[in-house]
Design a protein around this nucleic acid. Sequence first.
DNA 1: TGCCGCATACCGACCGATTGGTATGTTTCA
DNA 2: TGAAACATACCAATCGGTCGGTATGCGGCA
Lengths: 212, 212
Amino acid sequence: MAAESLSAESPSSAPARQKLLGAAITLIRKNGYAGTSVDDLCKAAGVTKGAFFHHFASKDRLAVAAADHFTSVAAAWFEQAPFLALEDPADRLLGYVDFRLDRLTDDVSTCSCLLGALVQEAYETSPEIRRACFAGIQRQAGGLEADCAEALAARGLSIDPRSLALHTQAVLQGAFVIAKAAGSIQPAVDSLLHLKRYLALLFDKPWEETPQ
Amino acid sequence: MAAESLSAESPSSAPARQKLLGAAITLIRKNGYAGTSVDDLCKAAGVTKGAFFHHFASKDRLAVAAADHFTSVAAAWFEQAPFLALEDPADRLLGYVDFRLDRLTDDVSTCSCLLGALVQEAYETSPEIRRACFAGIQRQAGGLEADCAEALAARGLSIDPRSLALHTQAVLQGAFVIAKAAGSIQPAVDSLLHLKRYLALLFDKPWEETPQ
DNA sequence: TGCCGCATACCGACCGATTGGTATGTTTCA
DNA sequence: TGAAACATACCAATCGGTCGGTATGCGGCA
């Protein structure tokens, strides 16, 4: 079930379509969904309005396709992460947080997740967008669920592994919000370190207090 | 420094003004900032456009005033919470999470923080809104900072109390995002329980595994 | 080989609706 | 009686979306 096939749009991978998806990810993360007009997207993608509505029936459909695209790109990028090679499932979870920590850019305006930004705005108006965003978040969490289950079971903890996996995504999303509010990524970094410390405490892993 | 005086708007507390602030909090939480038009706000408040622009120079200024209003209302509501009477600062922190847990409604569309929803949309376009939102979040976190400092010091932990206080807000914000994405408050409840467990582990507090 | 038929890809002027905001009143009350 | 508190009509700009048209490429057929 490839993400591409989830889209109800034209199956082609015409250049204009790809450019629009890329532009959508960039602009919506930066300016929000309502704050990004179709004209803005076209200009950023170097494409005309005709091309836009040739490939996407509406702005909402573009959003759904962008969410799907984002999801599959993120999944592919995640699947080849080095920490997956670690033996202990708890180490893999800690490695995941480090992995996300590494990818936090200094640019606060880019410091957000497309899915989180989209869903907050589109929740009321478009159930399809909401579904696509949640699917993406769940897929990211799904990649951690098995490790959570294994690590929890090994320590006899009766915590729902799915909720723990989803919690990591919640902290990530919250960190992005706080970073935008603060105008700095530092609080986001700190929050991920708290998340890491939580996992370390939960799984009896040593915690070296590395400042910053 | 009352929140009211922070606003650069008319100092009056005319009924129309209060109604608009209330409507803004409700509608923006539900539909987002861009998704809430001035006409929508006027209709919800039972007020005309003339009244709107009599009290607020622009839609952005209304947003700033609404953020300030929300902040002071939340602060007042927080200051008389029962958990503040607890002796142990760590218990007060756990009590705060329970307090927030209690206030999670079943209505997902209302399940969000005005400040978090606003700042994501207005970050690029309005620095004033961003500042007002961060001020509110910081004020909420500020109410926990002393307890964090005390509880951490009592256990010899060299963790920045401010970052821990802000982390609680990050988890809250993230929980709201995930709840909206999932279309259910359950993940938000779960995330707050994870936060509570983190604090319990950190402060060596007993943790009773209460399902749901 | 050359032409036809047709689908895909794309263009850009244009449309009605809605937006935030204004200008000019009228009412209310100290 | 004068200022604050509203109301109403209106505006320019922008929004998502439409529509008639063009360019290009490919399979089939004489």
